[in-house]
Design a protein around this nucleic acid. Structure first.
Lengths: 216, 216
DNA sequence: CGCTTCGTTGAACTGGGTCAACGCGTGTGG
DNA sequence: CCACACGCGTTGACCCAGTTCAACGAAGCG
């Protein structure tokens, strides 16, 4: 809290970081959701990470000179922007804070590795189930209580881009999960009915989220 | 160099870190190659990262209590094992070293995100070409000169597990690259003939490797 | 109240997987 | 020193999960 910051709001699909820009600020998400995406040569889009409230979304790019990907708002968001310099300064003078930044980055990496395994080696149904499990758990951790842990405003297209699938196929998998009684849908929100069975379908092991870091 | 360490050698497919174990040491690869892998529910394997000489292979797991994946030797390797405690100690007392560890972790994460995009949104030919480009460049950076930058002893099965493909299809793609004159093979090694065209095929942009960190 | 964005659905298609067999080199034990 | 086994590469035929294309529907918004 001692750091200087400015508050900023953003509409859905507004840019927190734009690919190719030099990031002068690190953003901390206060409310709302965001995603990181990469555009590949043929115009295809891949979402490589999701950010929930409390995440520091640009420890990454602010250290690495030029951003090699973009971060966009998924919903309307509010964020605190901290000058890159102040952040590096405090990391350099407060080892425990530096350690915390490092851990945060480490967990992001661990999640990315799980996503690689998810996309590379699981079929569409498992992938989708896995994503839903991850989202639900991460939202719970940051204080959404269980029942509403599914209000992440993602379109089927965005889910597809996160899972390496097409919209059409995401839709079919959603319906299949629904038919199996694992989820229910209401308009554009998904709620998990049977978290235990969903995790079995998804082959979901929560270890990779490293939620137990605090009790170290 | 002031840190205490013990040297250790390992044969191909020996474990540097075993999933589920508590890592008491961080390893620095001195020679040889290694890979990180995850096993998914149905027994499938996904290689989520490659490590080349000079890499600190377990900054990750040594901070995060229990390893959520394994690291295995790809070739015969030698490594220095540094006690976890000594490493954290030096990070806590030397901000510039802590900063370097953080950066190293950040780059690992950046590479993982590129892999997600590669597996999620590129077809088999591009994926393979991309992997070859990354390997060649990373090996060059750590001092293998260009001609021999391809002696990574990976089997086609391992490439498949890194790319989310099967052995059979990796083989077909290798042959296709060969027919196009982009690579040549001699027994079990691959050499890049036309790096420029290969990068075009691969949609390879080196930014994600963040090789320019040193000139900051 | 029309436009736009997203969801829904079916039919046809294909990239990559599966299966199964064979080939080649290397190491090993008799 | 040879026979055999084992690991890896190679190849073809067939198959299927997921894509593509195309059309329509439903909700939100200005």
């Amino acid at each position: 809290m001692a750091l200087p910051f400015t508050l900023k709001e953003l509409d859905p699909s507004g840019y927190l970081v734009r690919q190719g820009e030099r990031a002068e600020f690190t953003c901390v998400l206060l409310s709302g959701f965001a995603y990181r995406q990469k555009i590949v040569g043929d115009g295809g889009r891949q979402i490589v990470a999701l950010q929930v409230p409390g995440d520091a979304v640009d420890l990454q790019n602010s250290l690495l000179k030029i951003a090699d990907h973009s971060v966009q708002a998924l919903s309307a968001i509010t964020m605190a922007r901290i000058p890159r310099k102040a952040l590096l300064e405090i990391a350099a003078t407060h080892p425990r804070i530096a350690h915390a930044f490092w851990l945060d980055t480490l967990v992001d990496g661990s999640i990315a590795w799980e996503w690689i395994a998810n996309i590379g080696r699981r079929d569409a149904l498992m992938r989708l189930a896995h994503l839903l499990c991850e989202i639900a758990l991460r939202l719970e951790v940051v204080g959404f209580h269980e029942g509403e842990a599914h209000k992440l405003p993602m379109t089927q297209e965005q889910m597809g881009d996160a899972l390496g699938l097409t919209t059409v196929h995401v839709h079919r998998m959603i319906k299949q999960l629904e038919r199996s009684g694992l989820i229910v849908r209401d308009k554009r929100t998904i709620a998990i009915l049977d978290e235990h069975r969903l995790r079995e379908v998804a082959d979901f092991q929560r270890a990779y989220l490293h939620l137990n870091l605090l009790d170290d």
